[in-house]
Design a protein around this nucleic acid. Structure first.
Lengths: 339, 339
DNA sequence: TCGCTGTGCGCAAAGCTTTTCTTTTGCAGA
DNA sequence: TCTGCAAAAGAAAAGCTTTGCGCACAGCGA
């Protein structure tokens, strides 16, 4: 207790105290701890021992004041850390944490005012870089007023092609699903997906139509069924498709919820999945995909990988090796029992 | 570009530059910007203008070096930011952000080594406080080696009662559900829940048994059905209950997934929900509760509120007004169509 | 006109670490 | 024993902001 009283304002051990205990100057102590400089091994050891005895940890504030780097990056997410941005965030944090970089979390809840505020805060804290992520794959306006702080957009790319973005390969994902279905001999494929104003839905739909056009396969119902991302829509749409095109033998769905709804309807209307009709989902949202009957074959966007690559690009940019443009990360097909 | 070259290592505008432009000393500039000190209004204005022109933001590192406070708190989560810790985290971030405090995110993935590493990092960064949260409501060992940094445990309380913890009122939540069912005239209630080694399951089960014992109501099947937190278990258990106790008129389920599974089985076996049999879930996980047929009446743990209160207690502790012990946050019943 | 009061602003130290430069110490060779 | 060099360790500055203290000057009363 007396000990704590002697301590400076931060309430923590300072290098001067370590140096004092070891009987050397602060400069020498610093060198000893950082392995730089030259000194007698026993001196270094004395400092090391003192540091351990006092449980010394260098003050990062002082360090970054000097070095100009804070070893901190800001992570701005626009969707309350939802199902999509969370895995991205985790992947990023993983890649950064390994390099001793900490993550400042900022959730804007999609509010521009909040976003502005957070950017100011991050800039004031002199973060080394910023990662921006969101809920959707639609491109977004870039952050402004960044004053040269390296920034990478993950999952949600920037509309400015001179920015760095890492996105999911939507078309590749759709290709995986459709080619798998065609390869399995399916010939009448329905595509049920989310709202047409979502880029993800549009891109996957376009590629689905293209691929089906190339193979001698029929797009069941003659058109893509846009709706919303819910199970209810999946159930409704599946019901409609079965009525208008009873010979449909496969459903490619825009996400796992739609797929699950479709699977439920198929089962309830007496069709066997996958024997009679195959179902493929998208997202590989495990709680959904595994709880579905049968468990869903689905496309995984490799979200943690997107976060990881974004973090890597950011680290490169911080080191002055920035690369602009959108890099897409391939998806993979997770095969379970529904197709 | 010439301009940037003149700048110091951090690459950002410094107070000295602002002072230079305004023709005052750095001390005066600081006072002008902080509203402290006394000076001619026009002088203050000149500084303010210069700061805006240069887009000056004080260097937080220098600031905290001086003040001993970093205006940063660490948030340690043990479960990859899952469904439970995320809302808690958001609530906390909300309460802290309003007070100009930033959040350093640390995900330990349940690994003790990682946790140790993160604690070290946070301490080195001189965070003002730490919030610890997890996936389950089972108490956990407290962090050690904190050296007096204020810490609050949210959702997952600490086993040390001298720590500060904010937890969900598990028994109150169970009471809400059971009393609602009894009040609605249900007389044979089944309780299907997760594994008995989870505190949440045990606590709710005990209270359910107690309440049922007090009212002249029967615990359907004579015992609580422990299993796991999945839909599959909900389906299986519901099937069993219906066979062994066909006169069951209500299911209280340990989470929304179990409830949904139970509701599916009930429907498929020809029972109407809620007319014949009521179902109540737990967690109010919207994707689950809303997609269920019918949408689930369920207990909401008010997770963001838990995060908010944890943040408030932490802020108090940082200001020297620490309160030890576990504070429980009440649940609320969200009434939809299943009961 | 002198001295006092008070306002306005500058000076300098504190806060902690890293790094460069300088000084001291120790040893070897002459 | 003295000189010189290398190795070891210390001194000091830089990095940026805040704040207490003190100085200078203006204005006013005597």
């Amino acid at each position: 207790m007396t000990e704590t009283d002697r301590r400076p304002t931060t309430g923590r051990v300072t290098l001067a105290e370590v140096a004092g205990m070891a009987g050397v100057s602060v400069g020498t102590a610093s060198k000893a701890l950082n392995g730089s400089g030259r000194m007698r091994p026993e001196t270094r050891q004395r400092v090391l021992d003192a540091a351990r005895r006092l449980d010394f940890q260098p003050n990062e504030a002082a360090r970054s004041l000097l070095g100009g780097r804070t070893w901190t990056v800001g992570l701005i997410t626009t969707d309350g850390i939802g199902r999509f941005s969370t895995p991205v965030l985790l992947g990023a944090e993983d890649a950064l944490g390994a390099g001793k970089i900490s993550v400042l979390l900022c959730d804007t809840r999609g509010d521009a005012i909040r976003e502005r505020h957070y950017v100011e805060t991050l800039l004031a804290r002199r973060v080394d870089g910023i990662i921006v992520t969101g809920r959707r794959t639609d491109p977004r306006e870039p952050l402004n007023g960044l004053r040269g702080v390296p920034t990478v957009y993950a999952l949600t790319p920037s509309t400015d092609s001179s920015d760095m973005s890492v996105a999911s390969d939507d078309e590749g994902g759709a290709r995986l699903a459709v080619e798998y279905l065609i390869g399995a001999g399916r010939r009448r494929i329905a595509h049920i997906t989310g709202p047409a104003h979502h880029a993800a839905a549009r891109h996957r739909a376009r590629l689905t139509e293209d691929l089906i056009g190339q193979a001698s396969v029929e797009l069941s119902g003659g058109r893509v069924h846009f709706g919303d991302w819910s199970e209810a829509w999946g159930r409704r749409a599946a019901h409609t498709v079965l009525r208008t095109a009873p010979d449909t033998d496969a459903f490619f769905c825009g996400n796992d919820q739609i797929a699950r709804g479709a699977a439920d309807t198929l089962r309830e209307e007496g069709h066997r999945v996958p024997e009679d009709i195959a179902v493929i989902g998208y997202d590989n949202w495990d709680t959904m995909a595994l709880a579905s009957r049968p468990p869903l074959t689905t496309v995984d966007m490799n979200l943690p990988e997107i976060g990881r690559i974004a973090a890597l690009r950011l680290l490169n940019a911080i080191d002055g090796r920035a690369v602009s443009g959108v890099e897409t990360v391939p998806c993979r097909l997770v095969i379970r029992d529904s197709a």
